[in-house]
Design a protein around this nucleic acid. Structure first.
Lengths: 252, 252
DNA sequence: ACCTTGGCTATAGCATACAGTCGCCGAGAT
DNA sequence: ATCTCGGCGACTGTATGCTATAGCCAAGGT
């Protein structure tokens, strides 16, 4: 009982941690277009990030009170954020027990990768189908960003550039439904294999370059093929590393 | 306001209040295996159903208080149900304004159908790849159920049988991630075009029969092809009917 | 020594209370 | 007559209080 009291009192807007502070200043702004951006969104972002970079480990019990106290908000936004994380497969919600960080299984990882291949392949095909010169130029920009990260040997930048490139290609596809699905799947894929795959680096970005060329040429069939191979190789690399003992991560 | 009230009260059909009552008596039960099955789940089911069968119309403002009152629960489970409905694309959540039943656009419908084709095609391919005789037998059972519905000219049964057949095929694919995506997409697809498509009936079920034969033979490539054509035809039928004036539904 | 059982604690689930915000409408000014 | 501004109602977003349950531990029985 005492702990809960302390937890809530800490959260009782007396010490809004980063979350409240970031919003407090917007008081002056009066534009009708500006959306308040609910707390639960911020809470969701923070928790999701904590899960992704392993601050919260798979299987870990996410106690609403603790999270609320930690973030300086009440349980309510935390609950709603957890719900959303559940819908998107990040946490398991066991009735009357609460939320637990999802524990990835080998099977699931494989299925995710397979599904990703399917979706990304289609995305590439569509992107090639109606690519405009401006879009291609944008792709090349992103490609250069990747090369840069590669030369600087910055893993973080590399992962980011990779995500950006794929994301933009999806956007180019013009299919928002597809984009939504890919967003979900991709994020989880990255979570699964990011700690293992030191990124195929050079190789992967060469493939990207080739892919962009094909897209520029508008050859949708070939674009799809290249993307399939590209993601398949990532998948293979994933399996290989797992066998080699990168298994610190996934599954039991 | 009055019109909406009448709509919802009509939908609540009086008996819906049982949500709370059905659980009240569980006090005596002591089995550890018995899952409490949270209220929000029930609430979600009810609201989703109301949306699907048009008791709640596209664009309609879903006021938390009213839903809560009609269902006999507090706002809390309603909120959480709405969150989930939002993630799955059924309702739009406008900050500080609330939840609105999603308004389908023509573009979106098309993208949904295209995505469905992609996913279902893959599902069929995988199903064919490792189909067991038992599974094939089950498929034929479902097929017979469809034929039955067809001969009885029962639209409801037909839609149900159709859903069951596709769902089982997805299950056969063995890819749970894929299954999850298809479940989401399919449900929305059905929502979009159900009021228009009087189901292609005979024709569609003939295609099903052919598909099952191919799956039984384990020809995955061909299974995928057939499924693609199958769903593409549905798509065409959708567009055709829209142009003919079935546009009472989608978009503005 | 092992199993059973009853109470205890921590925590989720639900309900209720409070506060801030958006949009509307009418009154007053130009 | 039109435009602006201030009050008002409604509803969401957030906080907090309450209750029931799951899991644990210890005490007692077999």
């Amino acid at each position: 009982m005492t702990d809960r009291t302390s937890a809530t009192s800490a959260g009782a807007n007396g010490g809004r941690r980063s979350l409240g502070a970031a919003r407090g200043g917007s008081r002056a702004a009066r534009q009708p277009l500006e959306r308040p951006a609910p707390l639960r969104q911020a809470v969701y972002d923070v928790i999701a990030e904590m899960i992704i970079n392993r601050e919260l480990q798979p299987g870990e019990h996410l106690v609403e009170n603790e999270l609320a106290a930690h973030l300086g908000v009440s349980r309510q936004p935390v609950r709603e954020a957890l719900q959303r994380l559940h819908n998107e497969g990040w946490v398991d919600l066991r009735p009357a027990l609460g939320a637990f960080v999802h524990v990835p299984t080998e099977e699931e990882a494989d299925q995710l990768l397979a599904t990703r291949t399917l979706l990304e392949t289609e995305s590439a095909r569509l992107a090639a189908k109606h690519a405009t010169p401006e879009q291609v130029e944008r792709l090349r920009e992103l490609q250069r960003a990747g090369e840069q990260a590669l030369s600087e040997d910055s893993q973080v930048a590399l992962v980011e550039a990779n995500a950006a490139l794929h994301a933009y290609m999806v956007e180019m596809s013009g299919n928002k439904v597809l984009a939504q699905l890919i967003a979900m799947v991709d994020r989880r894929v990255r979570w699964y294999y990011s700690p293992i795959a030191r990124s195929r680096g050079r190789e992967a970005w060469d493939e990207h370059a080739a892919l962009i060329d094909v897209i520029a040429g508008g050859n949708s069939r070939r674009a799809g093929e290249i993307m399939r191979k590209h993601t398949e190789r990532t998948r293979e690399s994933y399996h290989q590393r797992r066998k080699e003992g990168g298994g610190q991560d996934a599954a039991s």
